[in-house]
Simulated assay, not measured.
Amino acid sequence: MIARIDTTLEQDGVGFPHYADLHTGRWVRTPDGNWTGGFWVGLLWLAAWRTGKSKYRSAAIEWAERLAPRAASKSVFKGFLFWYGAGLGVELFGDRVARQLAYDGTKGLIEMFNGNAGLIPLGTDAEEAAEVGNDRANIDALPGTVALLLTHALQLGADDVARRHLTKHFELCVRSDDSVCQSAVFEPANGRLIRRYTHKGLSDDSTWGRAQAWAMLALGQAMSFGDSSCQETAVAVANWWVAHLPPDSVAYWDFDDPAIPNAPRDSAATAIAAAALLKLAVLVPERRSAYLRTAEASIRALAEHHLTPTGPEDRRATGMLTDGCFDRRSGFATNNELIFGDYFLFEGLLVISGDLAPNRV
């Protein structure tokens, strides 16, 4: 995976890596980072941590600074950008540039907070194809955002925003059986749920793989940075994943696709969930064994069967995570390398190898 980071650094192209063609290894890039650019910077921070080489840290700072204009964007997804793009630089290196960027990103998030509804909405600039705005919520809005708020909001006098944002999203998106619905419409005046729906899942009633995984990750981050009040929800949501994961430990893009077992997989959802379970294994001792076993099985499956080269005849670029399904619903990048899938597999590998404490990131 470090070799893949190197080839990405060397590859021609302007903008942040977004998703790549599995045959050529060429990245499709976004000029401003879209919602995924922080994961490329996060890979660089982790490479610097793993290798001790200054070239990765220098590159991380350079790319992180390119995210600075996004602090003012009206998208809750900037939590991804400024946690993975800057927050990691603070947590791992105490980097001065990263600290200012993380502060600016957190301030931008707090400025979007709706105190009456008790959450930060998707926002008018949210990087979804449709149905965005100030009366919409999305479970994807929690990871990164919650971590930033819990580690930086106190400086801004808004230390309760993280708890309220997290609690309201689980009220809106977690079903009674502990599965997670991706999105919701709410009443801006009071936060009342109007309806649940999905942007990227099979249907409004199905469980899109990444929805469950993002929820698990957010809960792991919340507990890691001091909010233990969500432990019951964390265990319930994680237990659902463990119970429904296929025997080969790699999730389908949607748990309810009737084409299973011939439905597409999603290596990215699997990597996210594995990273979340490694955090929760430390935080919930009574579930440690089950969570570790599931996380390690998924990471092993991804590394052995979905990371190039996948066999002796595979001549593709080294270190591409295959079978990433960005948006099956719209037919967008349904079998590609995804920059966020790469990030979470790399994070998981570093945790398993003992190079990184799971609750630092």
Results as ranks from 00 to 15, higher is better:
E347N: 10
C325Y: 01
T318L: 10
Y291Q: 01
R328Y: 05
T318N: 11
V351A: 11
F326M: 03
N335Y: 07
Y343M: 03
T310F: 01
R329V: 08
L302N: 08
R328I: 02
Y343Q: 05
T310A: 12
E286Q: 14
G311S: 14
D323L: 06
A297M: 02
L349A: 10
S298R: 04
L280E: 01
L292K: 01
D342P: 12
I299W: 00
P309A: 03
V282H: 10
L345M: 13
A303D: 05
D314G: 07
D342L: 05
N335Q: 15
G341K: 13
Y291W: 01
R287W: 01
L356T: 04
R329T: 12
A297Y: 01
S353D: 15
G354D: 10
S330V: 03
L321P: 00
L302Q: 09
N336K: 12
R288K: 14
E347I: 10
E347Y: 13
A281W: 01
R329P: 07
L321S: 06
G324A: 06
G311E: 07
G319A: 07
L350H: 13
T334R: 06
H306M: 10
D314R: 12
R287M: 07
A303M: 09
L350Q: 15
G354A: 11
I339N: 12
C325I: 03
L292V: 00
I299F: 00
L356M: 03
G311C: 14
H306Q: 09
T308S: 11
A333H: 08
R287E: 07
M320V: 08
N335W: 05
T294N: 05
L307N: 03
D314L: 05
F346D: 14
D327H: 14
G331M: 08
F332T: 11
V284D: 00
F340G: 07
A290T: 09
E313V: 13
L345W: 10
R315P: 06
I352G: 04
P309W: 05
G348C: 12
I299S: 02
R316D: 11
I339H: 11
R287P: 05
R288A: 07
R293L: 00
V282I: 13
G319Q: 05
L349T: 06
A295K: 02
S330H: 14
R288H: 09
A290C: 06
R315K: 13
I299Q: 01
V284L: 01
D355C: 15
R293F: 00
T318S: 11
F344G: 08
V351E: 05
L307R: 04
E347C: 10
T310W: 03
A295F: 04
M320F: 02
R329A: 10
F332Q: 10
R316S: 13
A317N: 13
T322H: 12
